[in-house]
Design a binder for these strands. Sequence first.
DNA 1: TGGAATGTTGGAAC
DNA 2: CGTTCCAACATTCC
Length: 267
Amino acid sequence: MPEGPSIVILREEAAGFVGRTIEHASGNSKAVDFAALAGQPVVALRSWGKHFLIQLPDLALRIHLMMFGSYRINERKETAPRLSIGFTDGEELNFYACSVKTLPPDLDAQYDWRVDLMSDQWDPELALQKLRAAPDMLVCDAVLSQDIFAGAGNIFKNEVLFRIRVHPLSTLGALPEDKLRELVHEMRVYAFDFLRWKKAYVLRQHWEAHTRQICPRCLIPFHRAHLGRTHRRSFYCIQCQRLYEPAPLTPTRSRSRPRSQRTPPAS
DNA sequence: TGGAATGTTGGAAC
DNA sequence: CGTTCCAACATTCC
């Protein structure tokens, strides 16, 4: 369920509830005052990255499906819902095994929509600035950063790094500017490929790297390892994906600053 | 069939 | 005090 495009699909599937009034709500979430939801109209349904947002007049609900979360519209699963929102005529929106939080109602004050890969307001230049500002960060961590690429997940990481032929342990500061731009561009392209393929139930068959054994380009086996700050699964081809490393430190004795940064000799 | 996984949080440990 | 590590959450798939 969880990556950003899947949340866009949820938002689209639930769009019919916008403008309708909640009749009753229940569930095993400890973060929701269910009684307070009754009688409130759904002002809007929005998404930011992997967050699904239900805008009500007095508050907003933030649903995060995490790894295992799921939802049903006008259906129920066997297990108890974390949050069930009932409307007239028995229609309902049910969420399972997810994180639910209550937020203040002004979502624009709490979210920067420019960071959301799926948003009309997505701002590639802002992402580029943030990448440039973190030269020591590994690229495999950068593509998972929700502060830079909200909505990207581990599938994005493996697919996009394979597409742009960059080794996951590359350091941002060692990537040439045009590679950084290509990374930002391809994240957005893949986001909409993901959305289209997921809707057509063909997402998995388009994976070129994620969970794959053999590099489809050069036919040697993929490397697999748990890399980066969060030790997430990485699938990568050491022949096709270049490792960009920081320049090694030169010994102090011979280190000199670039000519442009030297203090001009006093005359 | 057990283990791993499309993810995040919060708290312990250092 | 900042950084890092890890458990917890709970479901599905191979």
